[in-house]
Write a protein that binds this DNA or RNA. Structure first.
Lengths: 235, 235
DNA sequence: AATCTAAAATTGGTTAACCAGATTGGTTTG
DNA sequence: CAAACCAATCTGGTTAACCAATTTTAGATT
């Protein structure tokens, strides 16, 4: 059989096609929540795509909690009603790649919350990890080196101390893209890094003292420069 | 060769093993950011796992933006320095499945922001979609039917109107789990749904009037009952 | 007619062989 | 000596055959 090699983009189109066909299947073929999907082989034949493509699409929908596949048994539609199902599939199909502004916006929102929660819930062990990340950051900055990574690791340590696994995951998802863009646009130059040391130290102290209000305030200060910087360079 | 069929859980363990071995590779084998990873075949041999397992692990790390594989060329380490890389891999390995409380906490945080942004950025088209979702919700409630899904679809329409793709994605990620848990714990009973109509209507009007302050306030009101309910039944 | 049982068919997962584009190293050519 | 070329090799992606657990089914038994 003729094999087509697809670029990443074309592949994404194929996946979207599969997902939209699955949506149609659910909408018009009376597939109820909890029902079993047709087998991967059948779908790949019906949709005229490879079985691996079908598997990938299923995996993606499984990540979004819409499908659930059980080994040697079948792939099942999550128990969330046809209306929500169809609406969510539409939304997933409409998803765009995140832009930098959207990432920063989300990061600020998340961190103003995680820092409060961290102040309330941190353990001694959390403090220890944050201390280490902070020291690594200071050392790099004092040596005049770039410290974007150490910076972000400190923030991730805070997210970890917030004891909210969802926010922690979300922070992990956006962090690499943030780092890449920061280094690309030279956000956080060394002169700002020196300020960053004190700001980080303030945040750490507030969390240590279990003072959520101060913690949030200090984080806001820390983000102020960043926020302006990002909105000036972009858009 | 003897084939082992693994449960979902065991499979997850295998994946974590691969990820931690990849981390070691980066830490101790002098793999720099931007470098090419050994080929999938080589890794599967070295780690003594199947190539598909390696591919799955790579796909997961690609999702977190840590790796980037290019067809017919290789899999490359993202340009984010060994320190951040190692730290993030540790965090990913430590990730737990989200608990209900963490989901609700995150949802409230996200929505108090998306509703503000929606009020600022909504288009006429966005309003139309929200109107439709709202009407579907009202009809279901007035018929005395369960309307959890329509409820959530209205909220997703708001996230869509916020024009922040990252928050929109995050809302989509948490929604199915929220729905499942709501139906499980019978959050949002019909008596609360009647209140919900007016609350939704208020939110819609505030967004229509492009008043972010009122929009956020009304959303807060909408979540008040929910928040208490969740924290009373759980924990 | 209902119930149990074993075999056959079906399933997602796994493996290995294969594909064509990308890379590479050596050779040729200007 | 450097640039252009070419073939051998390596790569992630794709395919198809295969595996074992599960589900279904048909038959035997009570």
């Amino acid at each position: 059989m003729r094999v087509e090699i697809l670029t990443k983009n074309e592949n994404q189109e194929v996946q979207k096609g599969i997902i939209s066909k699955l949506r149609d299947l659910i909408n018009y073929k009376n597939l109820e929540p909890g029902d079993k999907l047709p087998s991967e082989r059948m779908l790949s034949e019906k949709f005229e795509v490879s079985r691996s493509n079908v598997r990938e699409a299923i995996q993606k929908l499984e990540f979004f909690g819409i499908l659930k596949s059980r080994p040697q048994s079948g792939t099942f539609i999550a128990n969330i009603g046809r209306v929500a199902m169809s609406g969510m599939l539409d939304d997933i199909l409409r998803l765009e790649d995140p832009d930098f502004k959207s990432l920063v916006e989300t990061r600020i929102l998340l961190e103003l919350k995680t820092v409060r929660l961290a102040a309330l819930r941190r353990t001694e062990e959390d403090l220890e990890k944050m201390r280490q990340a902070l020291d690594a950051y200071k050392q790099k900055v004092l040596n005049g080196q770039d410290a974007v990574e150490e910076d972000l690791l400190f923030h991730l340590a805070i997210a970890n101390a917030s004891k909210n696994s969802t926010m922690n995951t979300f922070m992990l998802i956006i962090t690499p893209e943030i780092i890449t863009n920061f280094e690309k646009y030279h956000v956080c130059d060394s002169n700002q890094s020196f300020l960053g040391i004190q700001e980080h130290e303030d945040i750490y102290q507030a969390i240590k003292n279990q003072d959520p209000k101060i913690a949030k305030e200090k984080m806001k200060v820390h983000f102020k420069i960043l926020y302006q910087y990002c909105y000036n360079t972009k858009d």
